[in-house]
Design a binder for these strands. Structure first.
Lengths: 141, 141
DNA sequence: CTTGCTCCTCTAGTCGCTAGAGGATGTAGC
DNA sequence: GCTACATCCTCTAGCGACTAGAGGAGCAAG
């Protein structure tokens, strides 16, 4: 018979922390596993695959609800994959947008830091730029 | 006597929403302003400058505690600006790191989306890659 | 005088966990 | 068997930075 693993073993195997696994069960992202006579959770291979899927999706920045949708799709493989594609594309668009705005931010921060002469606050570029938006190179934010 | 403006006017002027201004007051980032006879807040020019400073710093991604430190520095202009510089540099390092990881993510997502043949889920690249980390181009995450 | 906007306070919700209390169970060494 | 210590259980509360909504009062225009 398949012994199954404890929640701690599942955590080590999947890289998802123990409380996080319990949390995923609570929000019904992961099915509640069988319990031992003494009330301990026992995980099988299928649970581990699901956990790995979730972890990977989280690493790629998908939100819980998106992952829920993707898991439902995985459970119904005969459906068209347009939804999965749309979710991934939405995430990609979000990432692209974030990179854009972070790159602009980076330029602004570099501008601030480079201008700092390490003197007193009253002549500090960092404080000065923060206080006056017009001192930004590209004040489009 | 300086009339001062209502919280709504201060919000329109600064671009910070009304409830957010109240929230900043609650966490003591913004001093509690004078009140009218009927208990309404009245903001002066100094409050507006402080609000603009906070808003700009938030736009650049500084956390509330960092902003609190920066505001304290601004209030004490004779101190050396090493702290302000350190805060800005820490933020810059964070932004650089974020850009790096988002760029890696972008490549992974593009890989997923490009591979999608828009067929059924059972042959969908998106689901497939999520389920199997080894199918990533650069599985360094 | 009524309509509709703004203001007040307070509480609770968002997201994805994470931390901690307080208690039961399991394992290893003696 | 006894003693540590790790691991497990449930439950509640906290994080950051707001945001939403209830329920009520004030204000300005028609």
């Amino acid at each position: 018979m398949p012994a199954g693993m404890t929640i701690g073993e599942a955590a080590r195997h999947s890289g998802v922390k123990v409380p996080t696994i319990r949390y995923y069960e609570q929000i019904e992202l992961l099915p509640a596993p069988a319990r031992s006579e003494t009330n301990r959770r026992h995980y099988e291979a299928a649970d581990l695959r699901r956990l790995a899927f979730i972890r990977h999706a989280r690493e790629l920045g998908f939100g819980i609800e998106a992952i829920r949708a993707l898991l439902t799709l995985q459970d119904n493989p005969s459906q068209p994959c347009a939804t999965a594609d749309a979710i991934a594309q939405a995430r990609l668009a979000d990432v692209v947008q974030r990179i854009r705005s972070l790159t602009a931010l980076k330029a602004e921060l570099e501008h601030m830091v480079e201008g700092c002469r390490h003197g007193k606050v009253c002549e500090c570029r960092v404080i000065e730029v923060l206080a006056d938006h017009d001192k930004c190179e590209h004040p489009h934010h």
